[in-house]
Amino acid sequence: MTEKVMMKGNEAIGEAAILAGCLTYFGYPITPQSELPAYLARRLLKMENGIFLQAESEVAAINMVYGAAGTGKRVMTSSSSPGISLKTEGISYIASSQLPCVIVNIVRGGPGLGNIAPAQSDYFQATKGGGHGDYRLIVLAPASVQEMADFTMLGFDLADEYRNPVMIMGDGALGQMMEPVVLKKPEIKKYNHDWVTDGAKGRGQNLICSIYLDPAEMEKYVHEIYAKYKIIEENEVRYEEYLCDDADYLIVSYGITSRIVRTSIDLARKKGIKVGLLRPITVWPFPTKVISEYADKVKKVMAVELSMGQMVEDVRLAVNGKVPVEFFGRTAGVLPSCNEVLAEIEKLV
């Protein structure tokens, strides 16, 4: 499928996963991501080696992912906010055991049961842990259906490369919307699998575990994982700039919100306001360095996101007091209009 097709974001993730060699999926239904398991059920159940299993819960699903990832298979699960909360115990185990997998969160309005409209209020959960202990996920934030597909493929590669769980953090709008998308089968590298638990034929025991009762031993292990995170921070920061070169004001915004901001920036430019957009593509690792560099050049920075102010904390850390950092957010499933964001941009001047 290398021609343009119209696809929902949720379905594009499903097809991209299959193209990336992920034939194993475990999940539990929740709106607004249910098209993804439905798509994979239709496809995988007809494939000879396809495994699609609707688990009894999100908790079970993530632990099935843990089991399958330990055998070296490309494996995925997906859910939406409340379901991700349930998965966080398993995610912590997977991160600690250094297993590759892709976890999709099609974020919805919260907290609590909330609603099924688009939101970005799971940013802390995705980038600051969510589950217990010291760990990090690589978190990719697509802003289009094409990126939902592309980042899914990229996510599997990053997961295998670093033996680390990767989260694709979309939202209800990206999951539900259709856009033209081109799906190309990627080349899949051979990764070292000498650690997997697939039967110890001709070798000693391989062990997937995350228990180290001796604190000193555990501390040493956590340091090892953090050395890996440091490499990820050095190599894998991704972001996109739009009209930043001459900007007096820098907006930092990601995912669906960044599209609205882009339109608002076009409107502001027509009014003579020099404003640019920096869109984090990896929200972990966060593009701290480039934002810090812009903070030397611009008059003000503003974070725009669908939350009460979560990513803005990372923006403030990056700016580190060099210039004022403003915040504009809508939350609980409400999207701002481009005119609303424009009004906020005008307030910066």
């Binding site: 299993l53 843990y66 399958a68 398993g90 697939d198 025991q205 997937i208």
Partner: peptide, 30 residues
């Protein structure tokens, strides 16, 4: 797993059947 020299996975509390499902489904000959 300390006492056996074959492969082992250590499951979160209560989740061993889910972990086992994840291991077995894509690897039916294990």
């Amino acid at each position: 797993y300390w006492y056996f020299d074959f492969d082992f996975s250590q499951a979160p509390h209560g989740r061993a059947p889910a972990v086992a499902t994840g291991i077995k489904r894509p690897n039916p000959d294990l």
